[in-house]
């Protein structure tokens, strides 16, 4: 599945719920399903700045593709980063850098987050791009 196809799939998944409370429930499920993140990797240099809850994001290379792992102390935030990982992990830096994130608006995520979490989402996307940039050969 390409990045665009995965984004499309998420937009469809979220559109199955009318109520935002149910969309949150879906995000929470994504958060709960995110694999455990090793405690020793919860270091300050992996913390994403600009989030009120703490979010750690780590990136490694595997056969030319970036593999993201992450965690957060808040479960909704964990769901958001899990969703982003499902889109952007296992891609080449070029794929990430040439994609856009308009799907977040189509889901309606941005407008349905508190202002602090909107900032957090912005920071997560920026960090993903920065990491892609720094892993580009």
């Amino acid at each position: 599945m390409t990045i665009e196809e995965k984004q499309e799939e998420l937009v469809e998944d979220f559109s199955m719920y009318d109520e935002w409370l149910d969309k949150y429930e879906y995000l929470i499920e994504l958060g709960k399903a995110l694999p455990a993140f090793p405690e020793e990797k919860k270091t300050d240099d992996r913390l994403i700045k600009g989030c009120q809850s703490r979010v750690w994001l780590d990136a490694g290379m595997d056969g030319g593709k970036i593999v993201f792992t992450a965690d957060s102390d808040a479960i909704i935030t964990r769901g958001i980063i899990a969703m982003l990982i499902s889109v952007y992990s296992g891609r080449t830096p070029e794929e990430i850098l040439t994609s856009d994130d308009a799907f977040l608006d189509r889901i309606g995520l941005r407008e349905n987050l508190s202002p602090t979490r909107q900032n957090g989402l912005l920071s997560m996307m920026r960090t993903i791009r920065d990491l892609a940039e720094s892993h580009r050969n």
Binding site: E19, L21, Y24, D73, A74, I75, I76, T77, S114
Partner: peptide, 14 residues
């Protein structure tokens, strides 16, 4: 076991 921000966010939607 529950983050205050998560709670506030769900309460808001209610």
């Amino acid at each position: 076991g529950v983050h205050h921000e998560d709670l506030a966010q769900l309460l808001d939607k209610m």
